[in-house]
Amino acid sequence: MCEDCTCGEEIQKNSIYLPEVAELVSKKKMTDIDSFFEFELKGHSLGHLPGQFAEISIPGIGEAPISISSPPSDDNKFEMVIRNIGSVTNAIHSLNVGDKVGIRGPFGTSFPMNNLRGKNLLFVTGGIGLVPARSAILYALQNRADYKDITILFGCKEPGQRLFTDEIEEWKNRNDITFLETVDTCNGEKWEGNVGVITTLLPKLKNIDPLETYAIVVGPPIMYKYVIMSLHDMDFSDKKIIVSLERRMKCGVGKCGHCQMDNIYVCQDGAVFYYDDIKHLKEAL
Protein backbone atom coordinates (compact mmCIF):
# COMPACT_ATOMS: atom_id res chain seq x y z
CA MET A 1 0.00 0.00 0.00
CA CYS A 2 1.32 3.42 -0.88
CA GLU A 3 0.83 6.73 0.88
CA ASP A 4 -1.62 7.93 -1.77
CA CYS A 5 -3.83 4.91 -1.38
CA THR A 6 -6.00 4.25 1.61
CA CYS A 7 -8.38 1.99 -0.29
CA GLY A 8 -5.86 -0.84 -0.41
CA GLU A 9 -6.44 -3.91 -2.56
CA GLU A 10 -10.10 -3.14 -3.11
CA ILE A 11 -9.44 -0.41 -5.65
CA GLN A 12 -6.96 -2.62 -7.48
CA LYS A 13 -9.75 -5.17 -7.84
CA ASN A 14 -12.51 -2.75 -8.80
CA SER A 15 -11.04 0.21 -10.64
CA ILE A 16 -12.61 0.72 -14.05
CA TYR A 17 -9.49 2.61 -15.09
CA LEU A 18 -6.98 -0.18 -14.44
CA PRO A 19 -5.74 -1.67 -17.72
CA GLU A 20 -4.70 -5.26 -18.17
CA VAL A 21 -1.66 -6.26 -20.16
CA ALA A 22 -1.46 -7.34 -23.79
CA GLU A 23 1.64 -8.32 -25.74
CA LEU A 24 2.43 -7.19 -29.25
CA VAL A 25 2.82 -10.39 -31.29
CA SER A 26 3.04 -9.01 -34.80
CA LYS A 27 3.21 -5.71 -36.58
CA LYS A 28 3.09 -4.63 -40.21
CA LYS A 29 3.27 -1.26 -41.92
CA MET A 30 0.22 -0.51 -44.07
CA THR A 31 0.66 3.10 -45.18
CA ASP A 32 2.98 5.95 -44.24
CA ILE A 33 0.87 6.59 -41.16
CA ASP A 34 -1.11 3.38 -40.54
CA SER A 35 0.23 0.11 -39.18
CA PHE A 36 -1.36 -3.22 -38.39
CA PHE A 37 -0.88 -4.61 -34.88
CA GLU A 38 -1.71 -7.98 -33.43
CA PHE A 39 -1.90 -8.20 -29.65
CA GLU A 40 -2.31 -11.15 -27.33
CA LEU A 41 -3.88 -11.26 -23.89
CA LYS A 42 -2.68 -13.71 -21.28
CA GLY A 43 -5.07 -16.57 -20.58
CA HIS A 44 -8.27 -15.24 -22.08
CA SER A 45 -9.73 -13.72 -25.20
CA LEU A 46 -10.75 -10.09 -25.48
CA GLY A 47 -14.35 -11.22 -25.97
CA HIS A 48 -15.24 -8.40 -28.30
CA LEU A 49 -17.98 -8.11 -30.89
CA PRO A 50 -17.57 -6.57 -34.37
CA GLY A 51 -17.39 -2.78 -34.22
CA GLN A 52 -16.25 -2.41 -30.60
CA PHE A 53 -13.17 -0.52 -29.48
CA ALA A 54 -10.64 -0.69 -26.66
CA GLU A 55 -8.46 1.80 -24.84
CA ILE A 56 -4.80 1.07 -25.46
CA SER A 57 -2.29 2.68 -23.15
CA ILE A 58 1.40 3.22 -22.77
CA PRO A 59 2.37 4.05 -19.18
CA GLY A 60 3.84 7.54 -19.12
CA ILE A 61 2.28 8.59 -22.41
CA GLY A 62 -1.45 7.97 -22.03
CA GLU A 63 -4.46 6.14 -23.41
CA ALA A 64 -6.12 6.18 -26.83
CA PRO A 65 -9.35 4.61 -28.09
CA ILE A 66 -8.69 2.18 -30.95
CA SER A 67 -11.14 0.17 -33.05
CA ILE A 68 -10.71 -3.57 -33.11
CA SER A 69 -10.34 -4.83 -36.66
CA SER A 70 -10.42 -8.60 -36.17
CA PRO A 71 -13.64 -10.61 -35.94
CA PRO A 72 -14.75 -12.08 -32.61
CA SER A 73 -12.65 -15.05 -31.66
CA ASP A 74 -11.99 -17.51 -28.84
CA ASP A 75 -8.34 -16.92 -29.55
CA ASN A 76 -6.42 -14.70 -27.15
CA LYS A 77 -5.24 -12.58 -30.05
CA PHE A 78 -6.91 -9.53 -31.55
CA GLU A 79 -5.98 -7.05 -34.24
CA MET A 80 -5.95 -3.31 -34.66
CA VAL A 81 -4.90 -0.83 -37.30
CA ILE A 82 -3.53 2.29 -35.71
CA ARG A 83 -2.98 5.65 -37.36
CA ASN A 84 0.01 7.53 -36.03
CA ILE A 85 -1.53 10.92 -35.22
CA GLY A 86 -0.80 11.57 -31.56
CA SER A 87 1.58 10.87 -28.72
CA VAL A 88 0.01 7.55 -27.72
CA THR A 89 -0.33 6.20 -31.24
CA ASN A 90 3.21 7.35 -31.99
CA ALA A 91 4.46 5.40 -28.99
CA ILE A 92 2.51 2.31 -30.10
CA HIS A 93 4.07 2.60 -33.55
CA SER A 94 7.54 2.50 -32.04
CA LEU A 95 6.85 -0.73 -30.11
CA ASN A 96 8.63 -3.94 -31.06
CA VAL A 97 7.19 -7.44 -31.11
CA GLY A 98 7.27 -8.74 -27.55
CA ASP A 99 6.61 -5.31 -26.03
CA LYS A 100 3.54 -4.83 -23.86
CA VAL A 101 0.69 -2.36 -23.72
CA GLY A 102 -2.17 -1.67 -21.32
CA ILE A 103 -5.66 -2.40 -22.53
CA ARG A 104 -9.16 -1.66 -21.22
CA GLY A 105 -12.26 -2.88 -22.97
CA PRO A 106 -13.89 -3.91 -25.18
CA PHE A 107 -16.26 -0.95 -25.07
CA GLY A 108 -19.34 0.20 -26.90
CA THR A 109 -22.03 -1.32 -29.04
CA SER A 110 -21.40 -3.62 -31.97
CA PHE A 111 -22.72 -4.22 -35.46
CA PRO A 112 -25.90 -6.28 -34.91
CA MET A 113 -24.67 -9.29 -36.87
CA ASN A 114 -27.41 -11.56 -35.48
CA ASN A 115 -30.19 -9.24 -36.60
CA LEU A 116 -28.64 -9.07 -40.04
CA ARG A 117 -28.76 -12.81 -40.71
CA GLY A 118 -30.56 -13.74 -43.91
CA LYS A 119 -30.14 -10.22 -45.31
CA ASN A 120 -27.87 -8.60 -47.86
CA LEU A 121 -25.01 -6.52 -46.43
CA LEU A 122 -23.72 -3.35 -48.04
CA PHE A 123 -20.58 -2.01 -46.38
CA VAL A 124 -19.77 1.61 -47.23
CA THR A 125 -16.40 2.46 -45.73
CA GLY A 126 -14.13 5.48 -45.96
CA GLY A 127 -10.48 5.69 -44.88
CA ILE A 128 -9.80 4.11 -41.51
CA GLY A 129 -13.56 3.44 -41.29
CA LEU A 130 -12.57 0.15 -42.93
CA VAL A 131 -10.83 -0.84 -39.68
CA PRO A 132 -13.91 -1.41 -37.47
CA ALA A 133 -15.95 -2.49 -40.51
CA ARG A 134 -13.38 -5.22 -41.26
CA SER A 135 -14.30 -6.90 -37.99
CA ALA A 136 -17.88 -7.28 -39.27
CA ILE A 137 -16.80 -8.07 -42.85
CA LEU A 138 -14.57 -10.94 -41.74
CA TYR A 139 -17.27 -12.18 -39.38
CA ALA A 140 -19.77 -12.22 -42.25
CA LEU A 141 -17.29 -13.99 -44.51
CA GLN A 142 -16.59 -16.59 -41.81
CA ASN A 143 -20.34 -17.16 -41.61
CA ARG A 144 -20.92 -16.65 -45.31
CA ALA A 145 -23.99 -18.92 -45.50
CA ASP A 146 -25.82 -16.80 -42.92
CA TYR A 147 -25.90 -13.73 -45.14
CA LYS A 148 -27.14 -13.18 -48.68
CA ASP A 149 -25.32 -10.78 -51.02
CA ILE A 150 -22.31 -9.05 -49.49
CA THR A 151 -21.08 -5.84 -51.10
CA ILE A 152 -18.08 -3.89 -49.84
CA LEU A 153 -17.30 -0.35 -50.94
CA PHE A 154 -14.08 1.28 -49.85
CA GLY A 155 -12.86 4.78 -50.56
CA CYS A 156 -9.84 6.71 -49.39
CA LYS A 157 -8.09 9.96 -50.21
CA GLU A 158 -5.34 8.58 -52.44
CA PRO A 159 -3.90 5.19 -53.45
CA GLY A 160 -1.14 5.41 -50.84
CA GLN A 161 -3.75 5.40 -48.05
CA ARG A 162 -5.36 2.08 -48.99
CA LEU A 163 -5.55 -0.36 -46.09
CA PHE A 164 -5.50 -4.18 -46.03
CA THR A 165 -4.36 -4.25 -49.66
CA ASP A 166 -3.66 -8.01 -49.62
CA GLU A 167 -7.14 -8.74 -48.31
CA ILE A 168 -8.64 -6.33 -50.80
CA GLU A 169 -7.03 -8.36 -53.60
CA GLU A 170 -8.66 -11.50 -52.17
CA TRP A 171 -12.03 -9.77 -51.84
CA LYS A 172 -11.80 -8.60 -55.44
CA ASN A 173 -11.15 -12.13 -56.63
CA ARG A 174 -13.92 -13.78 -54.65
CA ASN A 175 -17.01 -14.45 -56.67
CA ASP A 176 -19.34 -14.70 -53.68
CA ILE A 177 -18.97 -11.01 -52.79
CA THR A 178 -18.81 -7.69 -54.64
CA PHE A 179 -15.95 -5.34 -53.86
CA LEU A 180 -15.53 -1.87 -55.33
CA GLU A 181 -13.10 0.84 -54.36
CA THR A 182 -12.26 4.41 -55.23
CA VAL A 183 -9.79 7.14 -54.37
CA ASP A 184 -10.58 10.86 -54.09
CA THR A 185 -7.49 11.73 -56.16
CA CYS A 186 -4.60 9.79 -57.70
CA ASN A 187 -2.13 12.32 -56.38
CA GLY A 188 0.31 11.44 -59.14
CA GLU A 189 0.40 7.77 -58.18
CA LYS A 190 -0.28 4.93 -60.59
CA TRP A 191 -3.97 4.08 -60.27
CA GLU A 192 -6.24 2.50 -62.78
CA GLY A 193 -9.33 2.18 -60.63
CA ASN A 194 -12.19 4.52 -59.83
CA VAL A 195 -11.52 8.13 -58.97
CA GLY A 196 -14.09 10.10 -57.01
CA VAL A 197 -15.70 10.23 -53.59
CA ILE A 198 -17.28 7.11 -52.10
CA THR A 199 -20.80 8.02 -53.22
CA THR A 200 -19.72 7.69 -56.87
CA LEU A 201 -19.55 3.93 -56.32
CA LEU A 202 -23.17 3.56 -55.28
CA PRO A 203 -24.71 4.09 -58.76
CA LYS A 204 -22.47 1.29 -60.06
CA LEU A 205 -24.30 -1.23 -57.92
CA LYS A 206 -27.07 -3.10 -59.66
CA ASN A 207 -29.88 -5.04 -58.09
CA ILE A 208 -29.60 -3.71 -54.56
CA ASP A 209 -32.91 -4.45 -52.88
CA PRO A 210 -33.32 -1.76 -50.22
CA LEU A 211 -35.92 -3.83 -48.39
CA GLU A 212 -33.61 -6.80 -47.98
CA THR A 213 -30.30 -4.98 -47.51
CA TYR A 214 -28.63 -3.35 -44.53
CA ALA A 215 -26.10 -0.62 -45.24
CA ILE A 216 -23.22 -0.40 -42.77
CA VAL A 217 -21.58 3.01 -43.04
CA VAL A 218 -18.24 3.82 -41.39
CA GLY A 219 -15.98 6.71 -42.30
CA PRO A 220 -14.86 10.23 -41.48
CA PRO A 221 -17.49 12.69 -40.12
CA ILE A 222 -17.96 14.43 -43.47
CA MET A 223 -18.91 11.18 -45.25
CA TYR A 224 -22.14 10.24 -43.46
CA LYS A 225 -24.38 13.00 -44.69
CA TYR A 226 -23.60 12.35 -48.35
CA VAL A 227 -23.70 8.57 -48.14
CA ILE A 228 -27.03 8.66 -46.32
CA MET A 229 -28.45 11.02 -48.94
CA SER A 230 -27.41 8.56 -51.66
CA LEU A 231 -28.86 5.63 -49.74
CA HIS A 232 -32.13 7.52 -49.43
CA ASP A 233 -32.05 7.99 -53.21
CA MET A 234 -31.75 4.21 -53.44
CA ASP A 235 -34.88 3.93 -51.24
CA PHE A 236 -33.10 2.69 -48.12
CA SER A 237 -35.16 3.25 -45.01
CA ASP A 238 -33.40 4.71 -41.96
CA LYS A 239 -33.97 1.44 -40.09
CA LYS A 240 -31.76 -0.29 -42.65
CA ILE A 241 -28.82 2.06 -42.25
CA ILE A 242 -26.25 1.34 -39.55
CA VAL A 243 -23.52 3.83 -38.72
CA SER A 244 -20.48 3.85 -36.46
CA LEU A 245 -19.65 7.36 -35.24
CA GLU A 246 -16.36 8.85 -34.18
CA ARG A 247 -16.16 10.98 -31.05
CA ARG A 248 -13.48 11.76 -28.49
CA MET A 249 -13.68 8.63 -26.31
CA LYS A 250 -11.54 9.32 -23.31
CA CYS A 251 -12.70 7.10 -20.45
CA GLY A 252 -14.70 4.50 -22.40
CA VAL A 253 -17.04 4.01 -19.45
CA GLY A 254 -19.56 6.81 -19.89
CA LYS A 255 -18.21 9.19 -17.26
CA CYS A 256 -15.76 11.76 -18.60
CA GLY A 257 -18.23 13.50 -20.94
CA HIS A 258 -15.94 14.02 -23.94
CA CYS A 259 -17.82 11.78 -26.35
CA GLN A 260 -21.27 13.09 -25.47
CA MET A 261 -23.59 13.70 -28.43
CA ASP A 262 -26.85 15.27 -27.27
CA ASN A 263 -27.84 13.04 -24.33
CA ILE A 264 -25.84 10.03 -25.48
CA TYR A 265 -22.41 8.83 -24.41
CA VAL A 266 -21.06 7.47 -27.68
CA CYS A 267 -18.50 5.27 -25.89
CA GLN A 268 -21.28 3.30 -24.20
CA ASP A 269 -24.44 3.83 -26.25
CA GLY A 270 -22.45 3.72 -29.54
CA ALA A 271 -20.30 3.93 -31.46
CA VAL A 272 -22.59 1.69 -33.59
CA PHE A 273 -26.14 2.98 -34.04
CA TYR A 274 -29.10 2.36 -36.26
CA TYR A 275 -29.39 5.65 -38.12
CA ASP A 276 -33.09 5.67 -37.31
CA ASP A 277 -32.26 5.86 -33.59
CA ILE A 278 -30.00 8.89 -33.82
CA LYS A 279 -31.26 10.88 -36.78
CA HIS A 280 -33.28 13.15 -34.51
CA LEU A 281 -30.18 14.03 -32.49
CA LYS A 282 -28.93 17.51 -33.31
CA GLU A 283 -25.28 16.73 -32.66
CA ALA A 284 -25.11 13.34 -34.41
CA LEU A 285 -24.17 14.03 -38.02
Partner: peptide, 16 residues
Protein backbone atom coordinates in the same frame (compact mmCIF):
# COMPACT_ATOMS: atom_id res chain seq x y z
CA UNK B 1 -3.01 4.79 -11.29
CA UNK B 2 0.68 4.53 -10.50
CA UNK B 3 3.21 2.77 -12.69
CA UNK B 4 6.74 2.54 -14.00
CA UNK B 5 6.80 4.39 -17.33
CA UNK B 6 6.89 2.00 -20.26
CA UNK B 7 5.95 -1.04 -18.15
CA UNK B 8 2.23 -1.89 -18.36
CA UNK B 9 2.67 -4.74 -15.89
CA UNK B 10 3.38 -2.15 -13.21
CA UNK B 11 -0.04 -0.45 -13.36
CA UNK B 12 -1.54 -0.14 -9.84
CA UNK B 13 -4.91 1.43 -9.14
CA UNK B 14 -4.75 3.81 -6.19
CA UNK B 15 -7.29 5.85 -4.33
CA UNK B 16 -7.32 8.03 -1.26
Amino acid sequence: LKYKPGNPESYRAVNN
